[in-house]
Nucleic acid binder design. Sequence first.
DNA 1: ATGAAAGCGCTAACAA
DNA 2: TTGTTAGCGCTTTCAT
Lengths: 345, 345
Amino acid sequence: MTPARRPTLADVAKAVGVSAKTVSRVLNEDGPSSAETRKRVLAAVAELGFQPNLMARSIRVGGPDTTVGLVVPDLSNPFFGAVASGIEEVVDDRGLMLLMGSSQDDPGREHTLTQTFLARRVSVLMVVPSVGADHTHLKAPRAAGMPVVFIDRPGSGLTTDTVVSSNRAGARTGVARLIAGGHRRIGFVGDLPTRLYTRRERMAGYREALAEGGLPYDRRLVASAHHPEGSAEATARLLALPDPPTALLAGNNFMTLGVISELARAGRKDIAVVAFDDLPMAESLQPGLTVIAQDPKTLGVSAGRIALRRMDGDRSRAQTLTIPTRLIPRGSGELPALNGVRSGV
Amino acid sequence: MTPARRPTLADVAKAVGVSAKTVSRVLNEDGPSSAETRKRVLAAVAELGFQPNLMARSIRVGGPDTTVGLVVPDLSNPFFGAVASGIEEVVDDRGLMLLMGSSQDDPGREHTLTQTFLARRVSVLMVVPSVGADHTHLKAPRAAGMPVVFIDRPGSGLTTDTVVSSNRAGARTGVARLIAGGHRRIGFVGDLPTRLYTRRERMAGYREALAEGGLPYDRRLVASAHHPEGSAEATARLLALPDPPTALLAGNNFMTLGVISELARAGRKDIAVVAFDDLPMAESLQPGLTVIAQDPKTLGVSAGRIALRRMDGDRSRAQTLTIPTRLIPRGSGELPALNGVRSGV
DNA sequence: ATGAAAGCGCTAACAA
DNA sequence: TTGTTAGCGCTTTCAT
């Protein structure tokens, strides 16, 4: 059997015995219509299971689609899930939906995705830029009225609204805490690539704190990894140094998993840890994990608000909004520098 | 200044001095075109920053939109992020994108979302059904060729492809493990509402295991909560019973957070725990958390594969696919029933 | 209060 | 190899 064709406005019109325009009027509460016609039209709509074709509507009206295009590196990363949730919360009231795609942090994929979004005439484009991606192709659409917002990292080749976390200050605060606890050798386990904006900023904050504490920067105390497994290995290497760190800064949620896992495996309860990003069971670890919490939902909410303002005609200068991070002390960052006392300068 | 209008196919055609159809041919690699024209067309496209309007295309071609509509309860829940990621992985090759919306487990919102998706003519509709939601309105579109897949829970009022986890067997295996360890009083901390499919199934598995182990079902050992905080309180109540459980089954990831948090707070290392859903730091807890791991990504991948098969014309009977869960022993489920020996029958 | 005709941006079908 | 015409499903404009 051939599948039943989806009914169109014309089908409804024919069924009722009126013109298509009349049906359109009833459904959109456009011009006037008699109670009688209205009733019969609605009956036919229900009867036929008619669904107006929103694409056809968009075409005719000429306006943009009712979607927000969002490019994230990884759909399964809870951080970006929270961002998406924040965006949705804000744009939902305006009838906008989320069209999402993941770039895998690949500039090529990111470009393909943004092009597709443009072709789909999204109302708003939001991007978590990949390292090495260029965004010059977004200039014209933006000039034509489509808001573009960068999230979590600045974009390149386009000046537009941007929402990021206070990465540098957060890292500095966390490391300062460790220094205040007496630690003098503090390691940093960061993610890759090292050119990644958040990595660079957190690294910068780490170095600032060291400088402020009068501690030397020792590049041997800095390790990097892609995955939790790599992070665990990196942690092991750091602890095997002749003059090992007594405290660690974990650079993001994945790095933290590796650091914690290795410390647990090695039974090293003496190593202080401050971690970037809060994690679900952080407070149930022993000791509890001291974190620099980001606020991904607020990143999304802010991005959404800015976009709506732009859609409402705000033509002011592009702004960069920095969402504060928050140090949550839970124990692991408050461990005294016992080893530090022994092996320090 | 009035924003520049986005260029259309006609604009490109005029700029090059050819017909619209020729431009269309070049861009879609439809019929033949001379190398010369092709070059000039592409130049003009780049020059004007032309982006074909995909919605107009869809309308003309008559086919569905190139999107997969996905309704999940909560975008920020990593479980559904993983599901989404699995779907995307599969449908990406076919040029399909994810259009997502969250229902907050509200049947009304779910209905609105699915209606919007229908109006947008999504190629595929995937839904994690809310308790109490009805899906009869999806019958016609499905008959008209739009695949509908239920994920994680069965839908209602529509027979269609469904992908779920082996909730019952998983729970049974987990509880059997505890019984094998000598536990005779085993509590269950489940989520709400109790009518939720996954909750019911896991509860059923819990009871099956008790029965198989020759243990009585004691409803006082069953507690429920919405949030981790509630789960923590529920756990405390269970442990305060005159004849308290010596082991607990945590019903999902949020419940687990509460259980673990309360046990840590109370310093109860003697309570055995098996938890539904794996969690990032489960192995770093002390003892490591024994879990019944679901495979949300595979849920998504399977749903995607089924949908593609349907799009390719598969008209076979609707199938229900059950994705296995996997018990991962890490210590917390292997604790001996010390209290059980003392206070058991 | 309702309808007829034109057109949104694009492509199928048929010429040339 | 290229162009012309018509039409997707809807809404705008202008009549009636």
